[in-house]
Design a protein around this nucleic acid. Sequence first.
DNA 1: ACATAAACGGAATAACCGTTCCCTTTATTC
DNA 2: GAATAAAGGGAACGGTTATTCCGTTTATGT
Lengths: 219, 219
Amino acid sequence: MTEKEQSLNQTADSPQPNEDNFGDHSKPLRADAKQNREQILKAAQKIFAEKGLSIPISEIANQAGVGIGTIYRHFPTKEALFEAVNISYKQRLTSEAKSLMNHVDPGKAFFDLFSRVLDEGFTNRAWKDAFKSGALISETANSDVLQDFQSAIANLLTRAQQAKAVREDIDVQDLSTLLFSLLLALEQQGSASDIDRFHRLVSIAIDGLRCKDAFNKLK
Amino acid sequence: MTEKEQSLNQTADSPQPNEDNFGDHSKPLRADAKQNREQILKAAQKIFAEKGLSIPISEIANQAGVGIGTIYRHFPTKEALFEAVNISYKQRLTSEAKSLMNHVDPGKAFFDLFSRVLDEGFTNRAWKDAFKSGALISETANSDVLQDFQSAIANLLTRAQQAKAVREDIDVQDLSTLLFSLLLALEQQGSASDIDRFHRLVSIAIDGLRCKDAFNKLK
DNA sequence: ACATAAACGGAATAACCGTTCCCTTTATTC
DNA sequence: GAATAAAGGGAACGGTTATTCCGTTTATGT
């Protein structure tokens, strides 16, 4: 659906104004360009967080005070812009995950991260959409950040499982799916005082994840 | 987004060919009309179940062997068609719920229904979309069927809670949200052998829903 | 068979958006 | 303060659908 008509109106020598500096860092940007790029990212961050991936590009352009063309000068597609915005979230959570890795209680460390990811999603719609579009689970580019994120989580999970704090039959994929599903849950549901409901859901998930050995020992 | 331009191209006396017999049962349908209506419902049921709410209407028209116009003669909007299809799912599950209401073990009865709803969603995309569009939780029309469904579930839940099989701090809304979230989980994720993953998820949810008293008693 | 209202079909309409194109504006360099 | 290449803006394009409109076909009653 994206790779259809490549070289249609491309009369073999036109200057190809776009698809230039997207890998970026090739040439220093002009002063105004750099500023606009930042405005765009800021606006995108705000609007994606509020309304999710589905808003029209034009809305971001408005908010940023630039034209649509300017956005496309800086980012080849809407998705690329979205990705750019999401990288920072991923980095933040990754660093939180890493700092939790040395926690004395592997179970607590794991469930802390679990809650953090969900809390982020509760207030940040872009984060949910990132999960939805698979941006956190598989996919293409920015694999450095993504892999970091993945392996940090995997590490916490494994340690928690070894400590018998988390049931052993699940893997990172299960975890992603579970997170994904909880994040989506509140998407289109009533919005108001749902924080209580949300916490109850999280609590159910956490109890469900717990290793039953802890209880079995009591017998 | 749906109530915008009402009477724009409406020159005050045009015959309004549509919006006639949608409340229906007013006049007996012509023989071929009745047959087509059934074909449409059958096709819609199949295609919605396979591909969800997002397929174009034209695809249903093809499958049913009728023109687009015919569909709109019978159903005022795409959503109305979707709703018509979904009513039967709701009715089926409602009757299952009712038959579980007298089960000796309220806990088992509740978790059986819980699993049934999820299994349905696992193979029926329309069912997921129904949840997504809120069709099972709040909303407008067909309130008879919906209320039946809701109260049947509420009943099972309450009984299970009274029997200390399910934690007492949740309500039907929580339950809906949880179901909703699990149904959505597998939507855009890998598809192949996901049934195992799905069952693990369900198992997590069920364990999380259990009343902790059962374990506490062991102390 | 015929008349006629009901039902059909599907081209045309309308609205929405991502992306491109190209003309205009501006930062930078000398 | 020109010259010029980079950057900006936003109208226009193209694709996708839901929905409408109206000329054609058909079931039904007589």
